[in-house]
């Protein structure tokens, strides 16, 4: 097999990897915000629930979570869902990353000086306006470096999807490697992840610069 054919086959996997990456981000970033709200609630059931959720998601291997999410509908409810494989990957990744993002949001929100809330309150802003206009923009600036770390980890974690045989980049590379007995496709996959993360880091750096207009 020549390199071009290999690249073509890897290309399909690449697309799946990119899809997993973006869908996970789009779902886990807002979900994480809601979990962080629950985590900061005074009500001890809500707070306790959020704590337990975050604890389990961060305290068990993502690979195991993937397997559980994939097999749970069948073993628990006897359900067979069409095309569930991909959905399971997105679900497991989103649920897992939301827990990490929740803690990042919380650290950012709790680091905001109380004076910002008080200034907004005496100006008559309601709770939603205060959060959306005053607090959140500043929180985003504060947490951007930690978010960048998580996102870079996510790029690499997408390869874990191979445990439930999703044909993303890494799975495809493994398959070619096994069939052709050459580690070249794995090297190529490595280069792909590296370039992907290079782009991600560049975008995040650009965002950080954009938000650097104030201190």
């Amino acid at each position: 097999m020549d390199i071009l054919t290999m690249l073509k086959q890897l290309g399909g996997g690449m697309l799946v990897t990119v899809e997993i990456f973006f869908l996970t981000l789009i779902l886990s970033l807002p979900l994480g915000l809601f979990i962080s709200f629950a985590r900061m609630k005074k009500n001890c059931f809500v707070q306790g629930g959020a704590k337990l959720y975050i604890g389990v998601m961060r305290g068990t291997p993502l690979m195991l979570q993937l397997i559980v999410v994939y097999f749970a509908p069948y073993y628990l409810f006897g359900m067979r869902i069409n095309h569930y494989r991909f959905l399971a990957v997105i679900l497991a990744f989103s649920l897992n990353y939301a827990a990490y993002f929740a803690e990042i949001y919380r650290s950012g929100i709790e680091s905001m000086p109380i004076g910002q809330y008080e200034a907004a309150k005496v100006l008559g802003y309601n709770k939603v306006q205060t959060f959306v206009r005053i607090i959140l923009p500043q929180v985003i600036k504060r947490i951007l470096p930690s978010v960048t770390n998580e996102i870079i980890t996510l790029v690499k974690d997408t390869s874990l999807a191979f445990v439930i045989s999703i044909t993303e980049m890494f799975t495809t590379a493994k398959q070619i490697e096994a069939a052709q007995t050459t580690i070249l496709p794995l090297m190529m996959a490595g280069v792909f992840y590296f370039i992907f993360n290079f782009i991600v880091a560049g975008v995040m750096e650009y965002l950080e610069k954009k938000l650097g207009y104030y201190k």
């Binding site: 200034a119 005496v122 100006l123 500043q138 600036k141 201190k215």
Partner: peptide, 20 residues
């Protein structure tokens, strides 16, 4: 209370301007 809040303004020792 929201209506009453419009009656007064508050100037803080440490300003608390919105930095962004």
């Amino acid at each position: 209370k929201k209506k009453i809040e419009k009656y007064y303004g508050f100037v803080f020792q440490n300003f608390h301007l919105f930095p962004h």
